[in-house]
């Protein structure tokens, strides 16, 4: 029984990592950059929900929608202002800029909300469910359902729709995509918009399950989600999903059965092992050289 409950909350935590990892992996796939400010967009999303719902008494659903809109705009603006001018620059310059944006967001949050941890109240209105003596919280149920719906929708979007196919074309060959008439900058903006919207949802779900919010709330889940994306094969959408869920399950089971202090160490050790055996990650594509 303990195992089952650990497993379910691991899947729930992993779904949140997966939602964040999708943003990392899509941006990497399209823009070939690591957006280290992505984790902090989660924090911004959570603060928007906090301000609107906990402080302002707004309906939780509306609060989450507001956070989605806010983060989408924020993500597109970050790309336009910070990363787009560096499109031709060395990747190291872009990486350092991303870290800079991350600190900027954290410090803006510090300035506005101060450093003390805020008590977040759940946006989930589902009652806990008890099946055969096992109680599952409404937050866990909501997280898993929302994540599954998003992952299915995103997979359909990328594989079946015209903008989705254009995204895959840009990810494979930007020059050839332009020759098709695809506006590469537009596709990059779209990618940041989707990734940031997912980060807002992840932020709301995460702070509902683990109700503590500070300007640094996004940092650790951001790094874990990055690990999940690499774990699954960076650039691969199914990889981010599998990597995220696996990471959450491994983390939770280590917490439950080995040591809660060592759980992060175990997670990173597993990453190192996976990369030693399969450097491209679980579902990573082998890069074939073009002749």
């Amino acid at each position: 029984m303990k195992f089952l409950s650990q497993l379910i909350s691991g899947i729930s935590l992993g779904s949140i990592y997966a939602l964040i990892a999708l943003g990392y992996t899509m941006v990497y796939g399209i823009a070939k950059m690591l957006n280290f400010a992505h984790g902090d967009v989660i924090m911004v999303g959570a603060f928007v929900v906090y301000t609107a719902c906990v402080k302002g008494g707004m309906n939780p659903v509306l609060g989450v929608l507001l956070a989605i809109v806010f983060c989408t705009v924020l993500g597109v603006c970050i790309e336009r202002l910070a990363y787009k001018p560096l499109r031709q620059a060395a990747s190291l310059a872009v990486l350092i800029t991303a870290i800079g944006v991350s600190y900027l967001l954290q410090n803006l949050a510090l300035l506005i909300f101060k450093s003390d941890t805020k008590q977040f109240s759940s946006v989930v209105m589902i009652k806990p469910v008890t099946v055969a003596g096992l109680t599952v919280s409404g937050e866990i149920i909501a997280t898993i359902i929302v994540s599954v719906v998003i992952m299915v929708a995103l997979t359909l979007f990328v594989n079946k729709t015209k903008p989705g196919k254009a995204m895959r074309a840009v990810s494979e060959d930007k020059g050839a995509a332009q020759l098709m008439g695809i506006n590469v900058n537009g596709i990059i903006s779209l990618t940041f918009a989707i990734g940031s919207a997912l980060a807002a949802i992840a932020g709301a779900l995460m702070c509902s399950t683990y109700p503590a919010l500070s300007p640094y709330t996004g940092a650790m889940p951001g790094i874990k989600a990055f690990v999940a994306a690499v774990f699954g094969g960076i650039g691969s959408i199914p990889g981010a999903m599998v990597g995220g869920v696996l990471l959450g399950v491994i983390e939770n089971l280590s917490k439950g059965y080995i040591s809660s202090q060592l759980s992060d160490a175990i997670v990173f050790a597993v990453l190192i092992l996976v990369l030693l055996i399969k450097p491209t990650g679980i579902m990573g594509k082998k890069m074939t050289e073009k002749v």
Binding site: K162, A166, E172, A176, M180, G181
Partner: peptide, 16 residues
Amino acid sequence: FSLLTVEDNLRLGAYT
């Protein structure tokens, strides 16, 4: 676009 199908490649040719 090697990861897309032949048909999707052709459709992208008519993107505009």
